Amino acid sequence: MLRIAGIVKESITDGEGLRLVIFAQGCAHKCPGCHNPETHSFEGGYQIEDEEIIDLILKNPLLDGVTFSGGDPLFQAEAFHQLALLIRKKVTPHHPHFTIMAYTGFTFERLLEQRDLYIPLLHEIDVLIDGPFVESERSFDLNFKGSSNQRILDMRETLKTEKPVLYRM
């Protein structure tokens, strides 16, 4: 079960293609200028069962993927890992090109420092946008990220080398 701030059933701004976006509730980064400050509280939002999300995904055969946003979904790494596993089991057999994307204020290098907590989820993510939002580096000209310090990582390749590999769009 996840604690979320909300869901957008169809988005073209939170990753490639048409995506269902889940906004995690809770974030300790509290980046100045954050686009979603209402998601910072760990007590806000509401709880939702994984199966409810799977049903939403399966009801829309036009979806190209799901995006975990926030807040920061990595503050609920185990719960999002369980959801990702369920997506792989119940969605990708019907939609083999369905992707999982996630945003986090942590850098990949920082996540490696606590690999037992984060690596299971990262293995289920295809694309990770990492790094905190930095208001002085904000730009509306960046695809799928808010500030130029953030990276869009190909998680399959990044996990092979344990070094950041940029995703090619």
Rank of each mutant, 00 (worst) to 15 (best):
E124M: 12
H95Y: 10
F23A: 01
S41E: 07
L166T: 15
E135S: 15
S148A: 12
I22E: 00
G146S: 11
A5W: 05
E38N: 15
G65N: 07
Q114S: 14
K160A: 06
T104M: 00
R3C: 04
V165A: 02
I125A: 03
D130F: 02
H40I: 05
P61K: 14
D64P: 06
A102M: 14
V66N: 01
Q47C: 12
I12Y: 08
E43H: 14
F98Y: 13
L128I: 12
V91Q: 00
H29Y: 11
L18I: 14
D72T: 07
I53D: 01
R3I: 04
Q150M: 08
G65P: 07
T104C: 02
V66C: 10
G26F: 01
F98P: 03
L122H: 03
G105K: 06
S11W: 03
L117P: 05
R19H: 11
D50A: 14
G45P: 07
F68S: 04
N149T: 13
P93R: 02
Y167A: 11
V8C: 09
G44H: 03
L142W: 07
H94D: 11
D55G: 10
D154S: 09
Q82A: 12
F133Q: 02
F144Y: 14
P32G: 09
L58N: 07
C34P: 07
T104D: 00
F98N: 05
T107I: 04
L112V: 12
E38C: 06
L20N: 06
A5D: 04
L128G: 06
V134A: 07
L63E: 05
G6A: 05
P164L: 00
F98V: 08
T67E: 09
D141M: 12
A24K: 00
H97F: 10
R156L: 08
T158C: 02
T39Q: 04
D154K: 06
C31V: 11
G17D: 06
I4F: 01
L112N: 05
D14W: 05
K89E: 14
I57L: 09
N149F: 00
F133W: 09
L18R: 15
F144D: 00
E162H: 13
F108I: 00
D14P: 01
T107M: 01
L63Y: 04
